[in-house]
Design a protein around this nucleic acid. Structure first.
Length: 325
DNA sequence: CCAACTACCTGAGCGC
DNA sequence: TGCGCTCAGGTAGTTG
C-alpha cells in the first residue's frame, strides 16, 4: 500500500544508487506489468538498453527515471510493487516481473547490482514514455537531484524535496496533480478547488487529479487529526478547516517519511528490502476496536467505496445528512 | 467539468 | 485437505 511517503523513500534510494548508471540489459518476465507500454515488451527493452539514468523524480505516487535519451522510465508501485537493488546472484523473487541489469557508474558505487521490479498483485507497472513540457512551465515533479535540489524543511517542518532538473513530466502523468510536498503546489488554488467539490471530503482527498499522493491510509489519518468525518461535504468546509486539513495531510506524511514509511507486511519495502516504522504512528487506520489515542473511544470501521474507512466515532461524528454541514 | 461506478490482480485468512 | 468466499486498494475507463 505505498502512498507518497513510501514512494519517496524508494525514490531516494533509487536516486542515490542509480543516478549515472547505464542500463545494460532488460528482461521482462511477465507482460502485465508493462501493459502501459503500448508498443510492447520488446520495444520497451530496446528503448532502455544503453540509456543512462540522469535523475529519479516523483509526483504523487508516480516516479520516473529521466534518461539521457530524452525519454523516461515511468514506474508505479500500485498495491504491491517493489523496486529493489540487489546483487545479480540473489535468487529471483517469486513475483519478479522485470529485471534491469545496470552497469557500474563511475566510482563503482552501484557495485553491479540489479534493479528488480517485483509485484505480487500487478496493479503497478513500468513504461518508457516521452517527457512533455508542463502546462504551467514550472518544474515537473518533486524530488530532484543536486545541484539545485535543496532538501530540508521549511518553517512548518514540512519536507521541501527540491526542484527536478527538467520542466517536463512523462506522458500520461500530466493529469496528476502536484502533491503536498511539491514546492510549486499552489495551496490557495487547491483549497479553493477543494471547496467547490460536491463529494465527501475523503473522496476529494483521494482524487489524484485534485491533489496527488494521498491514499486510503493517510486520508484516514489526516481526517482523524482534523477531527473530520470523511463523508463531510468538501464544499461545506470552512476555509480555515480546509487549510488545517491540508496541514494535517502534510504533517502526517512528513512524520511517516521520517520513519521510513508505513509497512504492514513485507509488501512495502525500500530498495534494500527494509520495512518502515510508521505503523506505530497510526492513530486509526487498521485499528478497528482499539482506543482512539485522543479520547479512548473504540475506533470505528465503515465501508467506503469498496474498501474501508477508519475513524473515531466521538472525535469524528458522521454528518447529519449527505450534504454534510 | 464533475461524480460514481467497475475491472483489473493475487494471496492471506476464514468458515465449513 | 480443500473449496469458496471476503478483503486488501490505486488507477483507467465508462457512464450519467
Amino acid at each position: 500500500m505505498p502512498e507518497l511517503p513510501e514512494v519517496e523513500v524508494v525514490r531516494r534510494g533509487l536516486a542515490r544508487w542509480t543516478t549515472g548508471a547505464r542500463v545494460e540489459a532488460v528482461e521482462v518476465l511477465h507482460p502485465r506489468p508493462v501493459r502501459r507500454h503500448t508498443a510492447g515488451p520488446d520495444d520497451l527493452v530496446a528503448r532502455l538498453v544503453g540509456a543512462r539514468i540522469d535523475d529519479v523524480v516523483r509526483r504523487g505516487k508516480f516516479l520516473w527515471f529521466e534518461l539521457d535519451t530524452g525519454e523516461a522510465l515511468l514506474a508505479h508501485l500500485g498495491m504491491s510493487g517493489q523496486l529493489l537493488l540487489e546483487p545479480p546472484d540473489a535468487p529471483d523473487e517469486k513475483h519478479l516481473r522485470v529485471r534491469l541489469r545496470l552497469a557500474d557508474r563511475e566510482g563503482g558505487a552501484l557495485q553491479g547490482r540489479e534493479l528488480r521490479f517485483v509485484d505480487q498483485r500487478m496493479f503497478g507497472g513500468l513504461a518508457v514514455v516521452d517527457l512533455l513540457p508542463t502546462p504551467d512551465g514550472l518544474p515537473g515533479g518533486t524530488g530532484g537531484a543536486p545541484p539545485r535540489a535543496a532538501e530540508g524543511h521549511d518553517d512548518d517542518g514540512v519536507p521541501r524535496l527540491g526542484v527536478p532538473s527538467s520542466s517536463r513530466v512523462p506522458e500520461g502523468v500530466a493529469h496528476i496533480a502536484r502533491d503536498p510536498f511539491d514546492p510549486h503546489l499552489d495551496d490557495a488554488a487547491l483549497l479553493a478547488r477543494l471547496r467547490t467539490r460536491r463529494s465527501g471530503v475523503k473522496r476529494a482527498l483521494l482524487d489524484q487529479d485534485l491533489l496527488s499522493g494521498v491514499g486510503n491510509i493517510y486520508a484516514d489519518e489526516a481526517l482523524w487529526r482534523s477531527k473530520l468525518h470523511g463523508e463531510r461535504s468538501a464544499s461545506a468546509l470552512t476555509r480555515p478547516a480546509a487549510s488545517r486539513l491540508l496541514g494535517d495531510v502534510r504533517d502526517v506524511m512528513a512524520e511517516a517519511l521520517a520513519q521510513g514509511g508505513t509497512s504492514f507486511d513485507s509488501l512495502y519495502v525500500d530498495v534494500n528490502g527494509a520495512s518502515g516504522y510508521f505503523e506505530r504512528g497510526l492513530a486509526v487506520y487498521g485499528r478497528e476496536g482499539r482506543p482512539c489515542p485522543r479520547c479512548g473511544a473504540p475506533v470505528r470501521r465503515e465501508a467506503f467505496a469498496n474498501r474501508s474507512s477508519h475513524s473515531c466515532p466521538v472525535c469524528q461524528p458522521r454528518p447529519r445528512s449527505a450534504s454534510g454541514r
